[in-house]
């Protein structure tokens, strides 16, 4: 289980402070499959880096299996990555000089696993992703989908607490994407905890739980949909939902100019009454148009 409480991370861009994460709290239970959605600049990469122990938060508390990550030394962070986290990257990030087998073996070498056990586990992991035929192919001899499957095998060979997939389908054609997603579902069924980071709503929708990030804040968590909805005016509920998911076309979409979208979400976070008003007007106008 991993818990994040009020995580903040600020970057200094010239003279301006950018709040990449602005008070993010989320709990991910064991065996969950969570998709984190957000457009670029929403802070999802920063969130991934923090969850993956590649970076530490400025403020807040992050625990993996009860262990407070902020208190860890660099060496212990390395150990955390080695033992608790399995990474799957958009660019696959395989080491070009090593073949598929060696790439999958590498994390076990760093863990100091013995040669015999290594061989068993690497073979098993590559079998799981369906690549037992291509053990000794180098990354440049494999297709994108195959490379990503090697990366998946590398992520799961250490039997991590958490598999962290950052846009795993971002560089793949649609068929390979489906294959990788099917693989992730399979791993989820087998009991792995998976956090999938994506900007693609369709991909995210495949996960049982979605968390949406915007401007460094969680603006939507499908798990506690009720709570979010409670903060909304009941009258506009349907329209808001529609506006958020970008799914429904027609009346509501037409009524909302792209520019007011930000204001809508601001309205969700209960900050500005005015924005809600603007939104209501938009909704009313939409209704009118719909009536026409």
């Amino acid at each position: 289980m991993i818990t994040l409480k009020n995580i903040r991370k600020t970057y200094q861009m010239g003279n301006e402070a950018v709040h990449a994460l602005d008070g993010v709290s989320v709990t991910i239970e064991e065996h969950e499959f969570v998709a984190v959605i957000g457009s670029s600049g929403s802070g999802k990469s920063t969130l991934m880096n923090i969850i993956g122990c590649l970076d530490t938060a400025d403020e807040g508390e992050y625990r993996i299996e009860g262990q407070d990550v902020n208190e860890l030394s660099e060496k212990q962070l390395g150990k955390m990555r080695s033992q608790k986290i399995g990474f799957i990257f958009q660019q696959f990030n395989l080491i070009a000089k090593l073949d598929a087998y060696e790439n999958v073996e590498l994390p076990l070498i760093y863990q100091g696993v013995g040669a015999k056990e290594r061989r068993e586990r690497v073979t098993e992991a590559l079998e799981k992703v369906g690549l037992s035929e291509r053990l000794h192919h180098r990354p440049n001899q494999l297709s994108g989908g195959q490379q990503q499957r090697v990366a998946v095998a590398r992520a799961l060979v250490t039997r991590p607490t958490l598999i962290l997939a950052d846009e795993p389908t971002g560089n793949l054609d649609s068929k390979s994407s489906r294959d990788i997603m099917a693989l992730l579902h399979e791993l989820h069924r087998q009991g792995n905890t998976i956090v999938l980071i994506t900007h693609d709503n369709e991909i995210a929708a495949e996960a049982p739980r979605q968390v949406k990030l915007l401007d460094g804040k969680i603006v939507h968590d499908s798990q506690d949909e009720g709570a979010v909805e409670a903060g909304l005016s009941h009258r506009t509920e349907g329209a808001v939902e529609a506006g958020l998911s970008h799914r429904t076309e027609g009346a509501v979409e037409a009524g909302l100019s792209r520019r007011t979208e930000g204001a809508v979400e601001a309205g969700l976070s209960h900050r500005t009454e005015g924005a809600v008003k603007v939104y209501r007007e938009g909704a009313a106008q939409a209704e009118k148009e719909a009536a026409r």
């Binding site: 060496k75 390395g78 990555r81 990474f87 990030n93 080491i95 760093y110 250490t158």
Partner: peptide, 12 residues
Amino acid sequence: EIGIRKAIGAQK
């Protein structure tokens, strides 16, 4: 490559 190695568990 160093980044990848560190991400998958290489120590300093």
